[in-house]
Computed example of a mutant assay.
Amino acid sequence: MIYERCRALNIPHRKTGKLVVATDAQKSYIEKLHEKSLRLSWPPHAQPSNPDITVLPTELISGDEARRLEPDLSQDISAALWCPETGILDSHTFMESLEKDIMDSEGGELAYETRVVRVDPYRGEGNSVDIPEEEQGWVVQTLTGDANETDAFLVRNFFNASGLSGPFILNSLLPPEQQIPIYYARGSYASYKGPGIGGVSHLIYPCPYTGPNAHAFESLGTHLTVDLNGKVRFGPDLEWISPPSELDASSEGAIDFWTRHLVPSDSRLVEMHQAATRYLPQVQLEGMQPDYVGIRPKLIPPGGGFQDFVFRVDYSSTEKRKGPMVSLLGIESPGLTSSLAIAEYIVEDLLGP
């Protein structure tokens, strides 16, 4: 789907392929990934014309075969999962194309510098907003820029795709015992120039560390990415952070906290280098430089395992199952490149015709 859009709109992209590399002790992990890919089926609304087309083609290959693709891989790598359909794109051009689609659509509008300040279910009764009683949905109040007054909208379908703020919006509607706890982790990337990556052209992912519990990993590991200009980065790593609970989200102290944690630093380079050399042993610490940092939306606390891509549906009228609010929670990478598939899944499968 995304390749079709890139080709149709001339969005720069390249199908690089991806290797998930494994040592002898990690083979079972990629074998399970391969088995899972074989079990995937096409959704009813997207059946291919050729029934033999695989949803997610993958192939288990030997360590020697992986080194023929990427010669600098460690000799300790004894197997790999080859994912030929993985690729990269120009993210800014892609997002601009989505923006243009909205602006060019009938009734489409984007409100910049606008935040949601309140959401209330509307059931057509006992509401002070002047809207028809037969409507079911949500009253969404927003504040734009430096305005002193909010704007209110009635929406029949409300999509809570607000990233790190997603749980806050949902929790404002839930009783305390049902609210979703929020955890934060800092993810850093380091750019790299130096030996040990000669002619690298594929994305390379290590197997995540699972520890004694095979399902308890918290991150997919510090992997190698390459952009359309050939720039190599390692990341993201995982560093749990805890914002002071007494800070108001808009307070000066809160802003200082997040600003401080969004500044790239060299404090993580040694650990990132150690992670990279487990599969690319000739990578040198001196060639790594802090590149950029992001905050990762975590739904599970440290040591609690791994959970992402949660799609939750709540209704303004539970009895009538009308006025759906779809919350997208824990959407980590690759949220951007899977955005079209996410939208299709919500419209066609989750909400249905």
Rank of each mutant, 00 (worst) to 15 (best):
A79L: 08
L73W: 09
A25V: 09
E70A: 09
D76S: 15
E85K: 07
I197M: 07
D227T: 09
E348D: 15
R123Q: 10
E252A: 13
S338P: 11
S316T: 12
C83M: 14
I295M: 07
E4V: 09
N50Q: 09
V326S: 06
L328W: 15
S191N: 14
G230T: 02
L224A: 02
V21Y: 09
R268A: 12
L164P: 11
Y184T: 06
G145L: 01
S62W: 04
E344D: 14
G163Q: 07
D256M: 08
L340Y: 08
V139I: 15
V270C: 04
L285T: 05
A25C: 08
V313E: 11
P195Y: 00
H223C: 00
V226Y: 10
Y122T: 02
C6S: 01
V232L: 15
I241M: 07
V117I: 15
P206H: 02
G63S: 07
E348A: 05
A22N: 12
M288R: 12
V326P: 09
E113P: 00
N229R: 11
G187H: 05
Q282V: 00
G126S: 07
A25G: 10
F311C: 12
D72Y: 10
K231I: 05
K18H: 05
S339R: 03
Y192F: 09
Y29A: 04
G305Y: 04
T58Y: 13
E252M: 08
A22D: 10
E149A: 10
L328Y: 13
D52G: 03
A341F: 02
H45T: 15
A111F: 13
E125Q: 14
R233M: 00
G330K: 12
N10A: 14
I346Q: 02
D248M: 06
T337C: 01
L98H: 05
V293P: 00
E332P: 06
E319W: 01
W42P: 05
V310W: 12
A8K: 15
G287A: 01
V232R: 07
S165Q: 11
I169T: 11
P324V: 11
F257K: 05
P297G: 07
E125K: 14
D120I: 06
A111H: 13
E252T: 11
M325T: 10
Y183W: 13
L228E: 06
A80N: 11
L73N: 09
L328R: 05
G124F: 11
P71D: 01
Y122N: 08
L174W: 09
E344W: 10
L228C: 03
K15C: 06
H45E: 13
P302C: 04
K15W: 00
A249M: 14
E246D: 12
S251L: 12
L89D: 04
V119W: 05
I53P: 00
A152M: 07
S105I: 11
G253E: 15
H261R: 10
E348H: 14
R156F: 01
P167V: 02
Q26V: 00
P302S: 04
V310F: 11
F234Q: 08
A66R: 09
D130F: 06
I331Q: 04
R5P: 04
P334Y: 09
P44M: 05
G304L: 11
L269V: 03
L33D: 01
I300G: 03
P71G: 03
G108P: 14
L154E: 00
A79C: 07
V155S: 10
V226P: 04
T150N: 13
R7T: 13
L19I: 02
